[in-house]
Design a binder for these strands. Sequence first.
DNA 1: CCTAACATGTAAACTGTTACATGATTCC
DNA 2: GGAATCATGTAACAGTTTACATGTTAGG
Lengths: 183, 183
Amino acid sequence: MTDHELPTTAYVILGMLRLGASSGYEIKKAVQVSTRFFWTISEAQIYPMLRRLEDARLISGRDAPTGRRRRRVYELTDLGESALTDWLERREPTPFEVRDVAMLKLFFADAVGEDAALDLVEQLRTRSESELRELQGQVQPAEELARSTGNRFPALSLQAGISVHLALIQASDELSASLTRAD
Amino acid sequence: MTDHELPTTAYVILGMLRLGASSGYEIKKAVQVSTRFFWTISEAQIYPMLRRLEDARLISGRDAPTGRRRRRVYELTDLGESALTDWLERREPTPFEVRDVAMLKLFFADAVGEDAALDLVEQLRTRSESELRELQGQVQPAEELARSTGNRFPALSLQAGISVHLALIQASDELSASLTRAD
DNA sequence: CCTAACATGTAAACTGTTACATGATTCC
DNA sequence: GGAATCATGTAACAGTTTACATGTTAGG
């Protein structure tokens, strides 16, 4: 059972509903602060997908306006819950897909002068620093979620992201050093 | 001058031509062994893009069949060269875009049992090990390229990729440990 | 002889983003 | 009163993958 053909985006929505988000808007915000580090989705995907999932009976929705402001909240159905766990338990190839213009530019940096190349390394470092700050800003909320709901994996997976950017910062430093050394 | 509106894929092709690839087929292979770690492109993009770039005079092509087997080789024009360097020198936001189903599953792993969750961590580790092996397999060829052509950034950027996967392997181990500890 | 590698390409489908559009409510 | 946030949505476009299609040549 349970549809095998859902796009990953659908599982993000199912997963976020399970973690307590209820409206499309809340899902959007939750993605922006958490899964964003390894999967992004935009509003233009969320709202149509919510309908699709409701049509497929994986979630059930009801209108819950605040005053005159419309609002529709959803929750997982049993079918949706099992679609989510099936996906999580399904062993499938999960390639590491990165689309990183900064690294790409670094790869081709021989085409430009030393200053420009150093600048690219610097951009790489700065970016990882800011990603790191944002990830670290999520540590406390994630731990709070673990305490209050028992869902501890959001906090745990945060650590993996933090490790990646710490590694990239260190790699950038080593790169700058080896470039300036070889003046 | 030099078109501001080229997709990133176009610069990958320009960059690879600069590094010595000459045909679409060679570009494809070069991408598969090197930039693949931070940017992938498929054949279905390469051949149409080569034409577009030729139309835009950023590259020039000529037929160079081997026997009866057709083959078209390209080289950068001056215009193409400056499009590439302009892109490299252009400071632009380069967000860290990762689409990682494995990490995503880990984020939602509270929905499944301990065994399944440990399995997800294991998958993460195994994947980084195999990525690491492939990256390390590229170290010697990249160093050889540096020696023979003076292009040293392919080898240097490889190190950043290696750091990332070493960090992910370590993070996976720490994750497994903290999960089994908390039996 | 047959397989792997060389070599190029297209059509259809899918995925995803950007920009736009609309309106309500809260907080300063 | 105005800005930020809440809230939902669509249309057009851009980018990408998958599957298919075709043929050559080198090496075992």
